[in-house]
């Protein structure tokens, strides 16, 4: 299995996956802490509209997904702030309309679309160095934003009403956070695909939350868990292909590893309970 490391296509997908872990672990920690997984699910599926747009317009599908995702994040973010009821329906609408537009754009694209399935479920074969470069650029954008604005992001995730009442730019901060989430999703498209991206954006972070007491620590652990899941899934996909000749995309395997890790973590004591038992707390 380790011979895979000498293969250029595997090197590219592994580097892309490890770089995607950074975006995924950092932004996933905000997503899980603020409990906006459903909003983010809407964004990831809406990104497929951008993939289709990219094919149709002759652009990189990842660039199309980034643009489409940013627009969708603005729509969902403003709805989250303004709409008091029916938000779930709006998310479902953005979710399905994104997929629908993607299918329509692809149907309108002349010729055969060879790597379409890779955007749905991930692939070992279709990652280019240009894709790796794009993922690296997204990482730089996300890490820069977190370095500069973490106190605002943390406050909006912890207590949005207080952030608003204190005079913080709660609306723009939330929209920025959702925009970064849509970019994080773009980093995952080549490795796990549109349909499974939301799982990788939430499960490693949810696992990490059980073990650490601060958001920065959660981000670090979540990045590690993401990287382990992605690397494990990629090696497994390659190994299964070599051993049995079965072509299983890496995305589902990555998600299964992340799920097993999360379920296993539930069986162990929760950090909060452990710390509560270890401290003498006053009334």
């Amino acid at each position: 299995m380790w011979e895979a490391l000498s293969l250029p296509f595997f090197q590219r997908v592994l580097i892309a996956g490890l770089l995607a872990s950074v975006a995924c672990g950092v932004i996933g920690s905000y997503v899980v802490s603020k409990r906006i997984a459903s909003l983010t699910g809407g964004l990831s599926h809406a990104a497929f509209g951008g993939v289709g747009l990219g094919y149709w317009a002759g652009l990189s599908p990842l660039i199309g997904a980034a643009g489409f995702g940013l627009v969708a994040s603005m729509i969902i973010g403003m709805a989250h702030r303004k709409v008091r009821s029916g938000l779930d329906i709006l998310i479902a609408m953005v979710w399905s309309v994104g997929m629908a537009l993607g299918i329509i754009f692809i149907a309108l694209t002349p010729g055969y679309v060879p790597d379409l399935m890779s955007y749905l479920f991930g692939s070992l074969l279709f990652v280019s160095w240009a894709d790796v470069g794009l993922v690296a650029i997204v990482d730089v954008i996300i890490l820069s934003a977190v370095f500069l604005f973490h106190p605002l992001f943390e406050t909006i995730c912890f207590d949005e009403e207080y952030a608003e009442a204190s005079g913080m730019p709660a609306g723009p901060t939330l929209l920025t956070l959702l925009g970064l989430a849509s970019l994080a999703i773009v980093t995952l498209l080549r490795v796990v695909g549109v349909i499974l991206a939301i799982a990788l954006l939430t499960m490693p972070a949810a696992t990490a939350r059980r073990w650490v007491g601060t958001l920065p620590a959660m981000m670090v652990l979540s990045v590690g868990l993401c990287a382990a899941s992605i690397a494990g899934g990629l090696f497994l996909s390659y190994g299964i292909s070599g051993a049995w000749g079965l072509s299983i995309p890496p995305g589902p395997l990555i998600i299964l590893i992340a799920t097993i890790t999360y379920v296993s973590s539930i069986a162990l004591p929760h950090r909060r309970h452990a710390e509560t038992n270890g401290n003498t707390l006053r009334a």
């Binding site: 802490s33 106190p151 605002l152 943390e154 406050t155 995730c157 912890f158 207590d159 207080y162 952030a163 204190s166 005079g167 913080m168 730019p169 939350r209 650490v212 007491g213 601060t214 958001l215 620590a217 959660m218």
Partner: peptide, 16 residues
């Protein structure tokens, strides 16, 4: 939410 007491209190310093 994974956050310490001092981190919640320092949110009070953010006003813009």
């Amino acid at each position: 939410f994974p956050i310490r007491v001092s981190e919640v209190v320092r949110m009070g310093r953010l006003d813009s």
